[in-house]
């Protein structure tokens, strides 16, 4: 859905999105990386299980919620990537303990 304007330079890192490795650059948000994937969505809604993707990119819509390193409902537009980060698209509601 989105593409980077430049090839990543030295310092590029890899994050894991639902088991698929994804290239990322220091400083960019997890939501930005999600929007470059073949499946650019971040979560299924708790009410109707419909797909949502990052919408506002500034922390006010909560549609970019995903599981990051085992923590559910992370606002991925506010979370910078780091090497080896594990991201899972969030399926419905967050559960207690996650």
């Amino acid at each position: 859905m989105f593409r980077k304007l430049h090839e990543p330079e030295a310092g590029a890192l890899t994050i894991d999105i639902d088991g698929v490795p994804a290239m990322a650059e220091p400083g960019e948000s997890v939501a930005a990386v999600l929007l470059r994937q073949a499946e650019p969505w971040s979560r299924l809604t708790p009410v109707s299980q419909s797909k949502r993707a990052p919408y506002c990119m500034m922390g006010v819509c909560f549609d970019c919620l995903a599981d990051v390193d085992g923590i559910a409902s992370v606002q991925t537009c506010l979370r910078p990537v780091c090497d080896g980060m594990r991201v899972a698209r969030q399926i419905g509601k967050r559960t207690i303990g996650s």
Partner: peptide, 10 residues
Amino acid sequence: ILLKNAGQIP
């Protein structure tokens, strides 16, 4: 914001 933060465009 995606352009500023990640250098990416549609």
